[in-house]
Each structure stands twice: as structure tokens, then as C-alpha cells.
């Protein structure tokens, strides 16, 4: 790889990869909790699992639209998604929750405070995601940074089953480069901002692992109906 020279930007100063990632963002999904069911922990968890399943379908199309992702072999595309799917879901919840104090925006029609999280048995997870939200809020995370960081989380998922390590490294490099270029143009005042953003990824990984463990135990309980894709990916992480 050559050394970085000028940022690869359009005449308007926009990075091409970041622009493509903004265009690839999945549409918003509504949670639509079943009005016929009385409020309960089961209802809350059913709503979340159903929402996650529908988002996962959209996230697979999103991944295909990350510049360079679909050049990877199918097996590596699968391995990255199997490792990073929960990080991608959580990062989106964290970004959508930035305007809200102490509440998590799972969807526009499904916003959860600590009390509701406690009733659903999700208080620990709620706290962990809020820690991430506070990190991003203190940095004033921008949409361009969010979409790029989400793609980086996918490319950097540390799956143990990658076949073409060089190709995945190439994808990581191009996304990293895009973030560096964006920060170089938009945040010249803080040369460490890219590093600060990347340094939030361990907390995202930690939170995601916590969420996967929690939903695996819910799955074993067998009281919450789960759709097939959600189940398939939960099983991939065990």
C-alpha cells in the first residue's frame, strides 16, 4: 500500500467511500409491538427479537453495498457477518439514542428507559449500551462517522474462519482510509479523532458479546419466539 497523500475526495470535499456508505444505510424499521399482548418481559423480548430479525435481513443487503465487501468470497462474507452482526445492531441503537438522555431508541416506536429495561430483564445490557451512547455523545458522533465505523466493525470482526486474510485486510484498510480522509477534511482541529473513534470498538465488542450471551440464555429458556435468521446467527456465535 502506498503512503497516504491527499485525501481521496470529490470537489465538494466528500470521501467517495463515505458517500457510498451513507447511501447504503438501511431504511428505518418499526418495532410494532403487538397491541393484543399485555405488557410483559416476554412481550418486550419478543418485540426486540422480531425487530432484530428484520434488521438483520436489511443489514445483509447493507453489507453487500459496502464498497469491496462483495468482492470477498462468500465464505468470508458469511464469517464477517456471523461475528459482527450484534455489533452492527448495537451500534445503530447507540447512534439513534444519541439525542435521548438515559433511554435507548431501538426503533422510533420502541424507546426503552431503565425501568422498562429492568422489567424485561435487560438492565445490564441497557447500562452497557448507554455507556457506549455516552462515549459517542461526548464526541458528537456524526452520521458519516457512524456509517464508516459500522462498516469497520464488520470488516474488523476478528472471525477465526477467514479464508482470504489479505482480502479482508484490504477491506479494513480502505474503510480505515475513508475514515482518516473524512476526519482530515472535517475535523482538522482534532488529529486524534480517528483514533478516538476506533478506540470505542472494544466497548462495542464487549457489549455485543454480553448481548449475545443474554439472548442465548433467553433462547435456551424457550419462552420467547425467535425467527430463523436471528436464531441462526445466535447459534453462529456460540
Amino acid at each position: 500500500q502506498p503512503h497516504r497523500k491527499q485525501p481521496s475526495c470529490s470537489a465538494q470535499g466528500e470521501n467517495k467511500v463515505v458517500t457510498l456508505l451513507l447511501g447504503a444505510e438501511p431504511e428505518k424499521v418499526c418495532a410494532m409491538p403487538d397491541p393484543a399482548l399485555p405488557d410483559s418481559d416476554i412481550k418486550a423480548l419478543t418485540t426486540l427479537c422480531d425487530l432484530a430479525d428484520r434488521e438483520l435481513v436489511l443489514n445483509i443487503s447493507w453489507a453487500k453495498n459496502i464498497p469491496g465487501f462483495s468482492s470477498l468470497c462468500l465464505s468470508d462474507q458469511m464469517s464477517l457477518l456471523q461475528s459482527a452482526w450484534m455489533e452492527i445492531l448495537i451500534l445503530r441503537v447507540a447512534f439513534c439514542s444519541l439525542p435521548c438522555e438515559d433511554r435507548l431508541v431501538f426503533a422510533d416506536d420502541y424507546i426503552m428507559d431503565a425501568e422498562q429495561a429492568k422489567s424485561a430483564g435487560l438492565l445490564e445490557l441497557h447500562k452497557a449500551i448507554l455507556q457506549l451512547v455516552r462515549r459517542y455523545r461526548s464526541m458528537r458522533l456524526e452520521r458519516e462517522e457512524f456509517v464508516t465505523l459500522k462498516a469497520i466493525a464488520l470488516a474488523n470482526s476478528d472471525s477465526m474462519h477467514i479464508e482470504d486474510v489479505e482480502a479482508v485486510q484490504g477491506l479494513q484498510d480502505s474503510l480505515h482510509e475513508a475514515l482518516l480522509d473524512y476526519e482530515c477534511v472535517h475535523h482538522r482541529e482534532d488529529p486524534r479523532r480517528t483514533g478516538k473513534l476506533i478506540m470505542t470498538l472494544p466497548l462495542l465488542r464487549q457489549t455485543s458479546a454480553k448481548a449475545v450471551r443474554h439472548f442465548c440464555s433467553i433462547k435456551q429458556d424457550g419462552r420467547v419466539p425467535m425467527h430463523k435468521l436471528f436464531l441462526e446467527l445466535l447459534e453462529a456465535n456460540v
Binding site: 435481513v57 453487500k64 459496502i66 462468500l74 458469511m78 457477518l81 435468521l229 453462529a236
Partner: peptide, 20 residues
Amino acid sequence: KEKHKILHRLLQNSSSPVDL
């Protein structure tokens, strides 16, 4: 891979891949 057939199918069928 057989265990992950939904992911496999969705990856094969989803549209508009973008490559630089």
C-alpha cells in the same frame, strides 16, 4: 456452512453490490 443456509441464501440473493 449447511447450518447457516438463510444467511448464505440472503447473501447470494441480495442486490446491488458496489465495488470500487
